[in-house]
Design a protein around this nucleic acid. Structure first.
Lengths: 193, 193
DNA sequence: CCAATAAGTCAACATGACTGACATAACGTC
DNA sequence: GACGTTATGTCAGTCATGTTGACTTATTGG
């Protein structure tokens, strides 16, 4: 085992004045509420994906498959290029999971009517069944979480979540919310807002 | 390229009556709000982690390192076993990132005062600097998101997020919120609430 | 002294990201 | 009709992070 000879906390700081704020009561210097939110967001997202993950596992699928199923469900006839743009992953990453979903009959591809190069994506009955199951689980969790918070929490939460979306994703997300297939947005530099 | 001979949408359903609800206006059958939330949560979490990820990359670190830094910052003197319990990953997964953080001087390990088998974890000044940078970015994003939502949004959002946490994680998360190092909780079966 | 505990380590594996290069089919234009 | 562009698929290789199971080492405490 690595050699560790020092004897307990001494020179290791860990109590610097980061995030200056009033009310240093003990160990939680400041912005304690925001720090709590950061942590909560992590745990909340874990709670959000936990149950679907266990179900997907039974199909040999992962969270990546879930995302594809979700967005195809929400936007039947979605093009591969659009899906790539939504997920912001590479062609290869998508190809892997999409191939599985198609091969196993969860997703159906059809050549586009106007442009036969396009592969429009649809859920099969099987795919719809699985997606519904996952959606209902997540919808119930959200419904349950909102239930305890009084009326108006619904819209407020949606607004909060939307405000958390990266700036460069907002127009696209907004379009998805409205069910519009607006064309690909203008390219923007990178992640940083 | 795979053979695709069918001609556009026909027998592929994708408009089943899942999540029965009134007001089928077009393509978004129902529970549309909840569906929107599901999607928003995904995009929001992506927005939440996006900027830190780019910074971490410059250090050769990933999100896993961030989580360790965060929880050690929040709970100086954390034991390895506790961290494992919080993150719910395996010893090996943690060991990999923790070793890097220790080797590169972001985290300091000290043998426990009472029980010298324990390795208590602390941030070094270097580690605190990086953690602060990441924390401030995320705190600012949350602050900004809450700013537009009127007073009370703060607490309501925390309550929503907490309600999203998996049932089995709640006591532990609650304890973390209170800055308490309560001992490990009783084991529970698995993920499903 | 010895069993149990905290932590570290090794080997092997799976998933889902990434890159860059290349193949194929269809579209549109000259 | 040939040709460049576009949409998609595919190959080969890499990396980060998760997994398992077995084993070592240091320390504790009865």
């Amino acid at each position: 085992m690595t050699d560790i000879t020092s004897d307990g906390p001494s020179d290791h700081l860990a109590t610097s004045g980061r995030l200056p704020h009033a009310g240093e009561e003990g160990r939680r210097p400041l912005g304690s509420d925001l720090l709590a939110c950061i942590e909560l967001f992590y745990f909340a997202y874990r709670g959000f994906t936990c149950e679907p993950d266990t179900i997907l596992e039974q199909y040999g699928f992962g969270r990546a498959h879930h995302r594809v199923l979700h967005f195809v469900n929400r936007n039947p006839g979605l093009k591969v290029a659009e899906l790539l743009d939504i997920l912001r992953i590479t062609k290869q990453s998508l190809a892997r999971v999409l191939k599985q979903l198609v091969d196993e009959g969860f997703i159906i591809q059809k050549a586009g009517n106007e442009d036969r190069r396009e592969r429009r994506l649809y859920l099969s009955a099987k795919g719809a069944r699985l997606t519904d199951k996952l959606t209902q689980i997540q919808a119930k969790r959200i419904e349950g979480a909102l239930a305890g918070l009084g009326s108006g929490a619904d819209a407020l939460t949606r607004n909060f979540l939307f405000a958390m979306v990266a700036e460069k994703d907002r127009p696209r997300v907004e379009a998805l919310m409205n069910g519009l297939h607006s064309g690909p947005l203008a390219e923007e530099p990178d992640c940083n807002p």
